[in-house]
Design a protein around this nucleic acid. Structure first.
Lengths: 342, 342
DNA sequence: TTGAAAGCGCTACCAT
DNA sequence: ATGGTAGCGCTTTCAA
């Protein structure tokens, strides 16, 4: 293991000078700095991150803790974060929180907050107060925070607007009987859940349905977990039940593809019999048959905004903490075959 | 920040005793250990990983460095690794190597090897010799290593066997004109490339084609990058060229779905006109229309074998290194609609 | 069975 | 402009 002392010796300067030179401190003379850099390169020196971290409390690593790594949307999001962080000259480590026997709490406390200068976290069931001490005082930006009185910065997906636009689009292509696949209608009764992703998308639907003059009925909302298999079964049940519908807004793309697949199983054609819109804009929607119309979240924008918030927080004066800020990611309705009629 | 000294003071013992007690060292008396654990819990103490790592060189974290996080196969694989590692009581950090301006080398050297006790790495263009020093001497298991004279342990996807079975399956459902979408036929000339994933799958195809009595012709192999968009365009070109074919084996599921999508664009029906088999077994293949027949790699098995190799290496006696071992992951042909005829 | 103390590699303060 | 050095929090050797 080659240490900073080896480099210092090779360059004929002190350890302190080596440290400064390697980090580009301006007070080191250009000639000296060059000598040091050469020695470091020759010896293949890399600073020991643990030591640096222990000493200075910073190591240039940003953590992204995400629920599931094997679903399209979160993994595309992690990749976007990773790119954006690299653009700022930092490194990313990604953690999957779902599978740990100790859960997301342990991961945050034991790993993410320790190995990183800051983190992006998608909160599941941990409250703000708990997050505060799990974060070890390090900056954290949440994704789709449901808190009514936010403590952390957060970047949200454009739930209300996106859902509303999806409904208007369906109405626009002539749908008269719209169903919404995903949300539990009863969740509107719960103040906390109403603030979450599902609640906000549901709210967007309801307001848009009213806008386009459709009567909002509980049986328009078909509850399902957000995976393709469940959505597919819901489609089977819905068709078998005899309920008529000519448009479906699905709360995620994965749900939409499962639902379309289920309709195909029953011989219902998309878009001719039923027009379908998803939400997320995952890559696979483009090669699906039929290709999927979707509310496509601008992940580059989401990542940029999240990292902006995080960097701002990392630079803040500890004595004068900034109030928590909340921003919404951009999005775009991408029209494809699943709603293309006539 | 609560340190081990705070816990020691609270428990009324020394720092050393606290350290031993917290890690369950048997030489500490049960009563003392209990006292210490209580104090630690009361203070919400968590050991500082950087300090632990700096001092002992171990921290219970395993790194997974993967090329792209936003494609189905690598992200499902990372998730499987993450689960398997959790099962052994360790933590996982995942890194995407593709987007760093410094590249996979820098990531390995600067992050993965530093923050982890061991790593799983999917090598791109880095040679064994270079990997050796980038690994900081820490154990590393490669995924689909192409080396002719391996230096590291490696777990491989069942390329030859899987590809061969795919071809036999196509022949079995009556295909007489098979095309293979993905590989560059000329790559057989290159000894290194021949050892890679593409080369081995290609080799499997060729041997199976001969087995089933088909003449192997270069124009059966359609070169494409492994993404849905390119595969889709290849389908367009192939249909337009007038070449006849009634079966296609695609080197990955993503390629297969793009190719099927391209066939659909041209009005060719799957499986009636063309039967299609993919490779990987990604989740989305099940809800694709038509659902995708595929050589499904057993990711749980792959992860288990990889972590077994890594753990073995982490326990080895440094004086007597074990020779590199190479194992192959299990797989299964999953028959679905894309090859279901009659 | 427990405690004292050295030191992992680095950064940052202070001195020169 | 450069160097000496304390010390981040922990583990581990050695002594008691």
């Amino acid at each position: 293991m080659v240490t900073i002392d080896d480099v210092a010796k090779a360059a004929g300067v002190s350890r302190a000078t080596t440290s400064y030179a390697l980090r580009g401190d301006p007070r080191i003379a250009p000639g000296t700095a060059d000598k040091v850099r050469h020695a470091a390169a020759r010896l293949h020196y890399t600073a020991n991150l643990s030591a640096r971290s222990l000493r200075s409390g910073r190591n240039g690593v940003i953590g992204v803790a995400i629920y599931e790594l094997d679903r399209a949307y979160p993994s595309e999001m992690s990749a976007a974060m990773s790119r954006e962080i690299a653009r700022r000259g930092c490194q990313t480590i990604v953690q999957q929180t779902a599978n740990s026997k100790e859960g997301e709490i342990a991961i945050l406390q034991k790993i993410t907050s320790q190995l990183c200068d800051g983190m992006i976290f998608s909160p599941g069931n941990v409250g703000d107060a708990e997050l505060k001490y799990l974060s070890h005082g390090k900056p954290m930006v949440l994704l789709d925070d449901s808190s009514t009185a936010p403590v952390f910065d957060s970047v949200d997906t454009p739930c209300e607007e996106g859902a509303a636009q999806a409904i208007r689009h369906l109405a626009g292509v002539g749908c008269r009987d719209i169903v919404v696949i995903g949300p539990d209608y009863r969740l509107l009764d719960d103040e906390f859940a109403r603030n979450g992703v599902e609640g906000r998308r549901l709210a967007g639907c309801i307001s848009a349905l009213e806008d386009v003059g459709m009567r909002v009925m509980p049986d328009m909302f078909v509850h399902t977990t957000w995976d393709a298999g469940s959505a597919r079964r819901r489609a089977h049940e819905l068709v078998r039940s005899g309920r008529r519908f000519d448009g479906a807004f699905c709360l995620t793309d994965t749900v939409a593809m499962g639902f379309i697949r289920g309709l195909a199983d029953c011989g219902a054609r998309v878009p001719d019999d039923v027009a379908v819109v998803g939400f997320d804009g995952v890559a696979e929607g483009a090669s699906f048959v039929p290709s999927l119309t979707t509310i496509s979240v601008d992940l580059e924008d989401l990542a940029r905004k999240a990292i902006d918030l995080l960097m701002r927080r990392m630079c803040e004066d500890a004595g004068h903490p900034l109030p928590p800020r909340r921003v919404v990611a951009g999005y775009q309705l991408v029209e494809r075959e699943s709603t293309k009629r006539g």
